[in-house]
Design a protein around this nucleic acid. Structure first.
Lengths: 336, 336
DNA sequence: CAGCGGAAGTTATACGTAAAACGTCTCTGA
DNA sequence: TCAGAGACGTTTTACGTATAACTTCCGCTG
């Protein structure tokens, strides 16, 4: 890779400007007031930009003992949700001079890779989704400042948590469907052991318990269109009265359910009302557009990063769950 | 953040094992054969795992002058395409002890942020999509080894390029539609100046030029469901004979077109055949399932990373474009 | 005119690691 | 018997930066 000359160091800049390396560091680090004269500072800046100087981050990190880099651990990037979480986190990070490295926990259950080794970066802290199951133990073992996303506030052993108010979302969904007159519910649940999905199930069950004359059945599927299609198909083929409302743990499951419903010769929402959760782009791509719970994934990422910054500075992170809101579209209607 | 004791260094491990720091480095760096006895190596390893030692990457990077970290510059993560590119690149990277940092070029045309500063990491190389327009000039200015994705091989000034064979994909689409009997085409093009979209337009035009009795009209839209919806709606409302085949630059555009077509009271594929490009999850979520060109985004990312590794090692990167394949589903049929 | 204080620097040092260069000690073969 | 070659380490150094500690010069005050 013989790139002619190697990268210039602060010493090269110093030489070009006729000052010491320390002076360069002071000027470029913006700590020169009262230590270096204005004309000298000018010369240093000119020399730096002339040579195209970029500080060596490895050296700086070593010297300072911190890296201004954090790790974001997510379950996967197969849906845009965590991509948006990343975007939000990265935006806030950049505003504070931080970088974000991503660790999408691998889907296949291979030999559990080490998120830290694979990030290959020196880290100041970690933001981790509680859904990234296989990475969590390694993360817990490490001593880095940690913020958990969508995690049981009780079970987080002191780590800061940032949560979406999923329970309230399910409440809104349930009330919407009850108000439309639905009484027979089917819950298409994600086949993943994670707190955020437990919340959905618990909230839905308790809301319906409180509503007289309702019934609830639950089926499970992996979060994929194919998986949801199969699970829903099986449920629709089952004997007994057909439910009139299908509450899905997320939009992708709802999209799969749509297909099963069509294949069964039924229609949304006439024969079956369907709701999702996430409000991905997918929600408005399918027909009819999906009634779903809007989660602000970017705000979620921003909040996560802000919480981590707070932890790093010894401040208490913001309290309270992030609000969510029901978006009523064409997939829900009164039962026939 | 007073974490009781600070992280152990190699010197701590050395002390615990009763050897010198150099011995620790040799053992843990797997360079100890013939230099350190087996029992001593054992002691070192035991001490290291006892203390939970993790090498300080900043120090290692500084010492070695490389970081085993590369930057992946992508236009955005709003579709799963580049998320998969990342996944593929990160997988190959991990196999070689590399990490991948992501830089999604910001959508809003703000003050062009510096991808290198915002990555906040010392880098060994860069993989950049030619679609990440606003980051490209900064990247070109830097002297890092570079691999371009989806970029004009002629105009890349010596940087290695890795491309999908998009032209062949368009060829397959065109031949498929021509074989079905279509003669009147509408091209829903992405409203982004990028080589990969130019290729689509050029190939489509030249294929149809070669087919007697065909005609082609082109409309442009930003890559979003909303944008495609509006552009297609306008085109369908235009006077004159309606085209029978709609070739879209990607799946998302096709999803938007579906909605416009439905709103116009028409049906896919009876009134209008539609094709996409990407084969995102979206393609099978919509109804009817979309006939599209399958791009293997993960393989694309893998190939990009392998090319960068080759460049870093002074080897020539693999030649040849990545193959793509038409997936015929329910959105294409003979014209009425 | 001693001496003090601020401006404008410079010199020196530490961060933690990898590895080159340098010691010992023991064993072996001629 | 003695040179030479391992085996098994250790000592030392350099990577590039940030900053504490130090120097020098000058203007001013008492």
């Amino acid at each position: 890779m013989a790139r002619g000359s190697t990268r210039p160091t602060s010493r090269d800049v110093a030489q070009a400007a006729g000052v010491s390396q320390a002076a360069v560091s002071l000027v470029l680090g913006d700590k020169w007031r009262g230590r270096v004269s204005e004309p000298t500072a000018q010369r240093v800046r000119a020399a730096a930009s002339e040579l195209g100087y970029r500080p060596n981050l490895a050296a700086r990190n070593l010297r300072l003992g911190r890296t201004r880099t954090v790790l974001l651990v997510v379950p996967a990037l197969t849906t845009e949700f965590f991509a948006e979480v990343y975007t939000g986190a990265a935006r806030v990070a950049a505003q504070h001079g931080f970088g974000v490295v991503l660790y999408p926990s691998p889907e296949g259950v291979g030999p559990a890779r080490d998120p830290f080794a694979s990030a290959q970066a020196a880290l100041d802290g970690v933001i981790a989704s509680s859904m990234a199951a296989d990475a969590l133990t390694a993360i817990r073992g490490d001593q880095l400042p940690l913020v958990m996303l969508d995690s049981d506030p009780e079970g987080s052993l002191g780590a800061a948590t940032v949560n979406l108010d999923i329970a309230d979302g399910i409440r809104q969904v349930t009330e919407h469907l009850l108000a439309l007159g639905h009484r027979s519910f089917l819950h298409l649940a994600a086949d993943i052991p994670s707190w955020t999905f437990e919340v959905r199930a618990r909230e839905l069950a308790s809301r319906l318990d409180a509503a007289p004359g309702t019934q609830l059945r639950t089926i499970r599927a992996p979060i994929s269109i194919e998986g949801a299609l199969r699970a829903t198909e099986a449920a629709l083929a089952a004997p007994g009265p057909r439910p009139t409302a299908l509450v899905c743990d997320d939009d992708k499951l709802a999209a799969g359910a749509y297909k099963a419903i069509r294949r069964a010769g039924l229609r949304v929402p006439d024969d079956l009302s369907v709701t999702g959760l996430d409000d991905l782009g997918l929600a408005t791509a399918i027909d009819p557009e999906l009634t779903t719970v809007r989660l602000d994934a970017e705000a979620f990422g921003e909040r996560g990063m802000r919480a981590l910054l707070a932890v790093l500075e010894g401040r208490p992170p913001e309290e309270g769950d992030l609000p969510v809101s029901l978006v009523v579209r064409g997939s829900t209607a009164p039962p026939r």
